[in-house]
Design a protein around this nucleic acid. Sequence first.
DNA 1: ACTAACTCCTTGACGTGTCAAGTTATTCCA
DNA 2: TGGAATAACTTGACACGTCAAGGAGTTAGT
Lengths: 159, 159
Amino acid sequence: MSDPRWLNEQQAVAWRGLLAIINRAFPEIERTLRGHDLLAVHYTILVALSEAPDHTMGLSALADAANLSPSRLSHRMRTLVDRGDVVIAPDPEDGRAKNAHLTPPGLARLEAVAPHHVEDVQRLIFDHLDETETAALADALALVAAALCEHPEYLNPRP
Amino acid sequence: MSDPRWLNEQQAVAWRGLLAIINRAFPEIERTLRGHDLLAVHYTILVALSEAPDHTMGLSALADAANLSPSRLSHRMRTLVDRGDVVIAPDPEDGRAKNAHLTPPGLARLEAVAPHHVEDVQRLIFDHLDETETAALADALALVAAALCEHPEYLNPRP
DNA sequence: ACTAACTCCTTGACGTGTCAAGTTATTCCA
DNA sequence: TGGAATAACTTGACACGTCAAGGAGTTAGT
């Protein structure tokens, strides 16, 4: 690889900040959720379903909404289904597909945990930023996220 | 928990962006490093050591610099030591402590992988931001990261 | 000087994430 | 109308991350 595009000073600061947040704040957030018998993955899944029309989504769409691989979704779904928080049924219109539906108990669990979760996020992340800084952060992250979500060709471009 | 501090619109956008980046970009970055027999953790450890005076650091300081728990550092260090990239020796001044030293082969491995790694980071993150956006991102992330690093009392505040 | 508390680090067990492979169903196209 | 290519999802194996527990050394209180 000739002539690497090294990170400049700003990029290095941003990158190190991202690493610090991920390695320090996320485990803490996960710990709170675990105290309520949920994993962060589970929480994200429940949120996505709760925002879907009729609390129902196809598994592929769900995986995309939760930024998960099909495999990972499949593995983590088991707990939610076994516990009755989510029901999975075959899609009548496409024999390959399945739909996940958030049950009332599942929604109840989500609503019980949500206040603790958002408190963590506020305490660990946003309590350190004023409104202007938060807006700038949102703008930048949304741009990157949009690129990653809408252009999967950025991913796995290996030969 | 009474009266939860729900995320406002900006905060929600920022948070979702963060989740998308972590779940989509990071696995991709990790994949590249794995192709070179390294984990992201390993890479971070090597970087921290390469920036230390004499390429040497106490394990506690190293864990902090790499945002790792002592346990995680210990586990991941094994590979690096077995392979000869890093040497661990007891600290002469404190019988409890140990020092990690980056060897020439370890440095060589880091330098061989670094160009591929930064290319990933540029492609996945910074290629989607102009200079102003990058600066704003760096400012915000640095504030949060500094708070998390300097005030560990934010972590584990459970009763 | 003795012991309790603390720090530094390691280990083992268990649950999660990832990858590769496999199953079943649909689409494409010749 | 076949048959290959593609899509949706599942499974099993293996490696990583986390937690709780523990060994060894140092500090501090009395």
